[in-house]
Design a protein around this nucleic acid. Sequence first.
DNA 1: TAGATTGTTAATCGATTAACAATC
DNA 2: TAGATTGTTAATCGATTAACAATC
Lengths: 213, 213
Amino acid sequence: MRLRKISGAVVRRLPLYLRVLEEASRDGDKELMSSQELGERAGVSPALVRKDLAWFGEFGKQGVGYDVNNLKMELRRILHLDRDIPIALVGVGSLGHALARYFRRRYATDPGFQLNIVALFDADPAKQGEVIDGLTVEAPDKIREVSRELSLRMAIIAVPADAAQDVVDQCVDAGIHLLLNFAPVKLRVPDGVHLVNADLSLELQRLAYYMRD
Amino acid sequence: MRLRKISGAVVRRLPLYLRVLEEASRDGDKELMSSQELGERAGVSPALVRKDLAWFGEFGKQGVGYDVNNLKMELRRILHLDRDIPIALVGVGSLGHALARYFRRRYATDPGFQLNIVALFDADPAKQGEVIDGLTVEAPDKIREVSRELSLRMAIIAVPADAAQDVVDQCVDAGIHLLLNFAPVKLRVPDGVHLVNADLSLELQRLAYYMRD
DNA sequence: TAGATTGTTAATCGATTAACAATC
DNA sequence: TAGATTGTTAATCGATTAACAATC
């Protein structure tokens, strides 16, 4: 099922669909949903919803639609969200600290939330040993060791720009191949490592283009 | 110059080019840069660099390349980054608080950084009156008034999901038409209002798709 | 001048939409 | 059965790349 490679555009929409289904499921809206409605709620055309899902199997019933609960489970499986995902967070400055608190709170309170930050790292010796929300901040040279212990494969990078490439290299070295980067810098990663940039300044700058005078 | 409408894909790359030029300019690398090098540093093909820039004018010299300083200024102008942009931040929870500190520090220390958070809002009465980095947290019903005083046109939304739509409506009502949203929810905005989503959970979920077993 | 690189047009590639037979 | 909606193919649309004349 992972034979043909799926385009990034398709993958980007899957979590959107999943969210719509989670909401419908939680609110008990209905047990069935058409591509029409799923599309409306996700901000995507019905045809595209059907085409996206068809890459992974035949989940719907003609004349009926999709079973909300079933499709939710399928999407969770496809996205590997059918079990918890342990995550490392590197860089516990104000942004990293806030991200740690935000995601850990969400994990603790939202039963359908599988993203679990389980390790914190920071190069600042003054921060090492500090306990944040039950987690002790470690030195970055412990990444490899901790990564092995906890089977880490995903990390959030929230360090300053000039430290980011080193941290990424260490993560990759430790077998972590899924990276969400907040540092405002272009990072190089080897094949097989997936890097997503969450560069907030860049987003604001592109918004500025549309400014009315 | 803003007659033909430029695609979002093009606009998204402009801040990337700008960053490369700022770095080259700061490091004094060189005064001229070819589309080849600019592309390499930005992670884009040379042909695309030239095509993107050509939408806005003829900035290069055949056989020579682009003048780093000149192109930097042009891009700043195009992106409306040739002057400071005052920004409101709504929602001073842990994430909003961190964002405020991060951007305000960056504005204060980085001379080429034009994004200036100048107003904070939060619905929690316990937070109102609190001073963060020199800014007093106000009630959201002050958005319109403060917006007029400070000529705000851009806002960062860092409130809980269930409050986000209301806040956005208030912002739009106050003439703010550029929005960066962190709440994990699909928001509706009228025509002419530009909304960029920075949904961090969604990004992590899509990364999870690529997880190796 | 000779070499290099732009700006631009044509070709290619990929993603989205439209349409409809299959079928629940 | 009749009505509805899927899964899929063909048509369209848009974005990227290749190529090259213009020219610094």
